[in-house]
Amino acid sequence: MTSLRYSLAALALIGATQSAVAADNLDIIVPFAAGGATDIVARSFEPTFSQQLGVTSVVRNVAGASATVGTAEVANSEGNPNIIGYEPAGALTIQPSLKKLPYGPDSFTYICRTVSNPMFLMVSKSSDITSFKQLVKESQDQPFLYGSSGPGTLPHLAMAATVVNSDLKAEHIPYSGSGPAMNALAGNEIQIMADTETILENYDLRPLAVFAGHRLEGYDDVPTIEELGLPELDFAVWQGVVAPKGISDERAQQYADACKATVESDKFKTFADKAKAGIAYLGPDDFKAFVEKRFEANKQVLKDAGLTQ
């Protein structure tokens, strides 16, 4: 019994110190585990951003359920001026159409978009397919398999939209991330994958098309999806900063100014260059309009592909 009393006392002591430390810090929620692609950008964004705001901030990883758990935490902190989320595209513009979530696209105060990288449609370099036309033709006898980093992710949506809008015959196999999907592509378990330039550069891949409105610098011979006779499909992996609803306009303006200054800082630019993250700043109003547009477009793709509930 003595030992039980000891441990209760010790636990109570520990609890007390913890609550004494908590003060007016800014919480930056990253809805992925530490060390992931989004987390790395967020952690490079944080120092300059806090300096601009003049606060101490803490990057908090709240991972799970395709980044919706962390995102929901931001949405549920209505009126709290000390929490923001560093958000990926999927949690804001895809997941709300896929399942019942405690938030939607109108649950946030939009601050800024930071980076954006368009996606490519790619096959393995070891395959003999060199054009989208050839890909479509060869898929007629035996449908191809395309991989993704999970159900309802951008690589999934980009390919689902391509299949719906063209004669390409291909079926979806989801993996638990881009890495495992690349392993499957190398072993010819799947044949097609849509992902960003980082993936394209790091593995033996051949780009057949780019999901953007215009050809990209450095990839001048890769046609856009529209040039291939499909409707314009715009799929990019982007990240942005959101705050909960109900914060003061003044606070929102402070965030927006700090974000703009951070994205334009040399420190962040150097990092983005190294990590191959394309800086693509959008201010509060543009970002809001962008998210709404992407939300509707993705909803349509999900509907066409029969993925909405």
């Binding site: 585990a33 530490a34 060390g35 992931g36 692609a37 987390d39 790395i40 490079s44 991330g177 890495g179 495992p180 690349m182 392993n183 190398a186 790091n202 593995y203 190294k274 990590a275």
Partner: peptide, 18 residues
């Protein structure tokens, strides 16, 4: 191959990219 086998190596890979 640039393919992390588990969460731990994924974190290491992130550190290398930085």
């Amino acid at each position: 191959l640039g393919i992390p086998g588990d969460v731990v190596t994924a974190m290491m890979m992130g550190a290398m990219v930085i």
